[in-house]
Write a protein that binds this DNA or RNA. Structure first.
Lengths: 347, 347
DNA sequence: CTGAAAGCGCTTACAG
DNA sequence: CTGAAAGCGCTTACAG
């Protein structure tokens, strides 16, 4: 808020506000200067109703002369909308989410909405202030019951879009790639390259995307007549590099090492490569590694990563469009975006 | 906003609001249920004035029964504060900023403030809606005139803290490391290792930190009796990996290659290493590389990065504390936090 | 096309 | 300790 001066007197009438020290001018100051009512100023500002051209010019002149911008609290209190969208992400540190947010921002910026970015995790539950502040939510995070941020939310029916992390059986609209198919493509690629002992480096399965990718992995192995060896499935604690390093540790003590690892995130793949190298293994000569996401880092890391590319910007953009559609009263239709296999050095 | 139902009738009195379909209940509904006035409910909610213990319990019971949460717009409109802080970052993709934001969040979360995260750049100027929405700003970004987000801001005197990117001669309080000294430590380290031809990979100098680090670089060379060779100073377009790769390109065509590169960001250092490798140079054997920041990636990348470590979480935390102090009426005192040299494989 | 006025949901002097 | 009521700065039927 730009005006922090507490209200002093209850007798301050509209026009006097413009003399209110360094505080922002109010709509009544603009009205007075332009010689019109506040209703007219409001109409000009919001283009909500036709206004005489000459009147409009006077108002606009007054607005710019006073440097007036509407008080968003007053506006939202009356209009019932804030033009604010909450973006819920599990982790600011994972570049995957950052890229999606870039996509989200590119659309909101030109549609008059602003975003409010928040990290959501089970340990640090969502700030409930946000819920009543925003017109809708785009969630990249996993929430036990997404619709129930806090007790009362189910009732309030906050418009909601799931991005990448979604539940197919839910009624929440979503935008995502086909995680299962992405995993199938990755594992099939490794099979085609002659690998038969393929490990899976995955994340905690409260994430749908992790579960779906595991299913794709297992399905592909079975379809190829191979058995799924539980010893070759490693679950990382999170998706940071260190989590990948740690999770792969157990693999290295196996007598019969896998010849390939499919990691469900590029960050985990990079951690895996690091761990393999520390153990004196070469990638891809001794062990091939395939990642998921295609972060910018994937082509810079050495060896560069073979990975499943997600259209991250497009995911973000599509999520906003879906949400904005909902806000406009359209019925949401979920979308699957295409992924691609990018072959580089690591596998 | 959770209640999107437009107001239908002007005769809806307070209590009726609770029957208002699926919308959030209002303070008058709570008051009615508890058998007190809205003033008393407000006092209980904000602990702003003593309330009889038994009354308080009745109010609290009503609040939880109705799942009531205050409408933040109405609250802010009257109270004059939003408990929202704007965090301005140049680039979501650079993990350096993500780590600082983590630090910021850890403090705001427990102090009742929420953050609003926005990317600011010259090409995409700040969303002016934010300015009137927040109680204060923490900026990691470079702005020509930080106090003048838009025309009228100077007047409004939005409390402001600069984090890492600051101007020593400004009156804006800041939290940062000593960029010049960090560069001195990096370059001196390379000199101590016997390097005499040390290149600088820097960023556009509208960033103070980039300018300060160049100054430290030049100073250290001169103090060692060396001349500064302009051919060895490369300015990257941004701070992404690709910018580092591109900027180092020119260096590689030099007849007399440097034996070391000091990059003013880890992301640039990684780009530089990538470019060197592509050109068939070994790091550190042919060319040593020292970075800046100490991202998580710095110890995972191969070769791991020798770098100047910034206390990123602490920078974020200190920035919030400084801003909150200002909001509480304290006079801000800027702080310099310590950095350290971390020696690893790259140089 | 325009204005007077009610109302959005809170907080806070003011007066008990 | 508590309540009636004004006021925060907007928007929007309603009535010209």
């Amino acid at each position: 808020m730009t005006s922090r001066t507490p209200r002093k007197s209850r007798s301050t009438s509209g026009i006097a506000a413009s003399a209110n020290g360094p505080s922002a001018s109010s709509i009544s100051a603009v009205a007075a200067l332009a010689g019109v009512s506040t209703a007219t100023v409001s109409r000009v500002l919001n283009r909500s109703k036709p206004v005489n051209a000459e009147t409009q010019q006077r108002v606009e002149a007054a607005v710019s002369q006073l440097g007036y911008r509407a008080n968003p609290f007053a506006r939202s209190l009356t209009s019932g909308e804030s033009r604010l969208i909450l973006v819920l992400t599990p982790d600011f540190l994972n570049p995957f989410f950052a890229e999606i947010v870039q996509g989200i921002e590119s659309v909101t910026r030109r549609s008059g909405y602003s975003i409010l970015l928040s990290q959501a995790s089970d340990t640090a539950p969502l700030d409930t202030v946000y819920e009543r502040l925003v017109d809708g939510v785009i969630s990249l995070a996993h929430l036990r019951d997404p619709k129930a941020l806090s007790g009362t939310d189910r009732k309030h029916n906050l418009p909601w879009v799931a991005c990448s992390e979604f539940r197919p059986d839910d009624d929440i609209p979503y935008v995502s790639i086909d995680h299962r198919q992405g995993a199938i493509d990755a594992v099939q690629y490794l099979l085609n390259r002659g690998h038969r002992r393929i490990a899976l480096l995955t994340a905690a399965e409260d994430y749908t995307w992790a579960r779906q990718r595991r299913i794709g992995y297992e399905e592909t192995l079975r379809r190829a007549g191979l058995t799924v060896d539980p010893a070759l499935i490693r679950v990382a604690r999170g998706t940071e590099y260190a989590d990948g390093i740690e999770a792969v540790g157990g693999l290295l003590s196996l007598q019969d090492l896998p010849t390939a690892i499919f990691a469900v995130a590029d960050t985990l793949a990079i951690g895996a490569i690091k761990a393999l190298r520390r153990a004196g293994r070469r990638v891809p000569e001794d062990v091939a590694v395939v990642g998921f996401d295609n972060l910018h880092l994937a082509q810079v890391f050495e060896p560069s990563l073979t990975t499943i590319a997600q259209p991250m910007r497009e995911l973000g953009q599509a999520a906003v469009e879906l949400l904005l559609g909902q806000l406009a009263g359209e019925k949401p239709v979920s979308r699957m975006l295409p992924h691609t296999l990018v072959v580089r050095e690591s596998g």
